[in-house]
Each structure stands twice: as C-alpha cells, then as structure tokens.
Amino acid sequence: MTLLITVIAAVITTAVWYKEKDRDYKLDFLSLMLWGASIMWFVDAIFEFAELKAEYFNQAPMDMLNDAFLGMAVLALALVIWVVNLLITDPQGRLKKKLSK
C-alpha cells in the first residue's frame, strides 16, 4: 500500500509538473523525491515477494490498513519537505514581496 500510494502521488506530481507553465513551484523536486522513494520501495517489494511468494498478496486487513496509514504519513512528510523547500528557496521572490508589504 505504501508503494502504491507513493507511485500514484509521483505520477500525479509528474503530470502536474509537465502541465505547469512557469515551473515556479519546484514540482520537479517533489516528483523526484517521490519517484526515488517509489523505486526504493519497489526494490523492497521485490525482495519481500521473493521471500514470501504468493503470500505477499494475501496480507491481513489490519496490516494493509497500517501500510496505507504509513503511505499517507509519508506523503504528508514529502509535501511538508517540498513546501518548506519552496518557501526557503522562494524561486519567484513571492514570499519576499509578501513579507516586505
């Protein structure tokens, strides 16, 4: 579930980055972060699948719920890191303008 949630978030972020005209929201940073985590969890899933075989797909509902909760928490952390990075780097100087008003 964590892998699925991260991959879906990475795809959505990449699509929004592709559509964005001015490229001033630093979505490339967010999508690279999510893709990096997705690749790493994918490798983890392969090793787990090699160990558990078909049992890998028969997880207990509580484990799946815990995994989904973890996935959402990971996504929240990624968004927090992205927004902090956006505010610190302030690519278009918008924060500076707002604060100096």
Partner: peptide
C-alpha cells in the same frame, strides 16, 4: 542534482518508514 534529489528524497522517506 536530479540523481541527488532521487537518492536523498527517497532516503528521507525511507528513514521515516524505519522510524515508523
């Protein structure tokens, strides 16, 4: 920079999973 973002971003999120 793309590579470091992939590696560092992924590692930070995995670090969180390990803490979890």
């Amino acid at each position: 920079k793309w590579l470091s973002n992939l590696l560092l971003g992924g590692s930070v999120l995995l670090l969180f999973e390990h803490i979890w």
